[in-house]
Amino acid sequence: MNKLSSVSSFSRRRAAVVLSLGAALAVALPAVHAQSPVASYPDKPVKIIVPFPPGGAADMFARLVGQKLSEAWGNKPVVIDNKPGAGGVIGTEVTAKSPADGSTFLMVTIGHAVNPFMYAKLPYDTKADLVPVGVVAQVPSIIVSGPALKGKSLKDLLAMAKAKPDELQYASSGTGTTSHVGAALIESMAGVQMTHVPYKGAAPALQDVMGDRVPLSVDIITSSLPLVKSGKLNGVAITSAKRSPKLPDVPTVAEAGVPGYEFVSWYMLLAPAKTPPAILEKVNAELRRMATLPDFRTRIEDTGGEVSSMSLKESNDYLNAEFTRWAKVVKDRNIKAE
């Protein structure tokens, strides 16, 4: 073989190797590109929007989740951004219109499933613009009464409501809030008619119940538990399917006179609808992992709640069932936004 043919042969072999490498890279690069959003996620600060003021249960759970996500991601920042107003609508709108890149999440509760049926129009499509990432916790409420009704059972209260429709009042932290719809569900299932007295928050509502200016309220256990234990409020019945270990002597609503009644507040993380599924899966996996951590469980159980752990599909099914449930209650009780 002469020198020229030897060089030519080497050039052909080198070209073949280059082509082979090029082909391999052409196959590999899309795969690397497809994985990169998750492999590098999060590559910028993440925020959890809370559509309520600081200090409430949604805010507390968002901060707990944010802390655990930050730790899992090597202390990358997870910021809690409170955007209260309009029963959660303001913060929800901000989230729905945020970039769908995994940088923005939203912590919601039952009002998210009530608002689409209570408001004539919302500035976002509740079902189309947001998707569930995972359920974080479920928290029961307590039917509480003031000093004047001490010793009265739920059956006694329902009898009073049936004897004089619309005379028995109940306080809530606002129209469409957990304390409102929990009581509305009792009215619907027990066939009674009470008068709703909305307040701007749980604190003033409970203050008036303690002062006997309004007879009762259906309040989330996180805020009412200390008041019941101190004797400032009477614990009439708890809304969960089973008794709370925090108040073992307080019967469930089902035990006390409304068979089949069960009502818990849930706290769910949502994301803009077009967030990449792989990112949703990654964050959902972190939520389910933190649900197994003893310190995380203890923090939630200390509030009277229970840790929840659901897959993306289970969370989606759960939320859809809540939409169906509250659509009926809103219609039955003719609940309208203020």
Rank of each mutant, 00 (worst) to 15 (best):
A285C: 08
A23Q: 08
M310Y: 11
P51I: 07
F61Y: 15
S173H: 00
V209F: 06
G305Q: 10
W73A: 01
T92R: 12
V236Y: 07
A57N: 15
V7Q: 13
Y41E: 03
F61K: 01
E306T: 12
L280W: 01
A271I: 06
K44H: 13
R14C: 14
L227G: 06
T178R: 05
I279P: 03
A256C: 08
E281Q: 14
S179V: 03
M210D: 02
V94T: 12
G55Q: 12
A163V: 01
T298V: 05
I90P: 00
E322P: 01
T324M: 08
S103I: 09
D302W: 04
V133K: 01
A171E: 01
Y267F: 15
A327N: 15
S172H: 03
V89M: 10
L106W: 01
L130D: 03
F10M: 11
Y41D: 02
A271S: 14
V50N: 10
I238S: 00
I238E: 02
K121Q: 13
T195H: 09
V307P: 02
A161D: 01
Y199R: 04
K76V: 09
K232A: 13
P140K: 06
S141C: 10
V228R: 02
M194T: 07
T178L: 07
K232Y: 05
L216Y: 01
S265H: 05
P30R: 09
I48C: 06
V94I: 15
P132F: 06
V65C: 05
S240L: 03
Y170P: 03
A184M: 12
V136A: 05
G74C: 08
A205D: 01
P277M: 14
L206R: 03
Q35K: 12
A137F: 05
A23K: 04
Q207V: 04
S230R: 10
N316A: 15
I143D: 00
V46F: 11
A183R: 01
S98H: 11
L168E: 02
L319D: 00
E93A: 14
I335P: 02
A24R: 08
S308P: 04
I48H: 06
F10P: 00
N284G: 07
V264M: 12
V139F: 02
D166Q: 14
S20N: 08
P30G: 10
I49D: 10
L227A: 09
N2T: 09
A321D: 15
T126E: 12
S6R: 14
M310F: 13
V94M: 15
S5E: 13
S40V: 11
T126R: 12
A203S: 13
M118C: 10
G88T: 08
S240F: 05
Y199K: 05
Y261I: 00
A171C: 04
L247S: 05
L287R: 04
D125C: 09
G22E: 12
L280H: 02
P165W: 08
M60R: 13
S145Q: 02
R333H: 08
V283Q: 06
G55T: 12
L319F: 00
K83W: 08
G22V: 10
D129G: 12
K232F: 03
P53K: 11
V192Q: 04
T177W: 08
D212Q: 02
N320S: 11
Y199N: 11
P37Q: 14
D101A: 09
L122R: 13
I90D: 11
A39F: 12
A205N: 00
V264F: 06
V38I: 14
L19A: 15
A72W: 03
S224G: 07
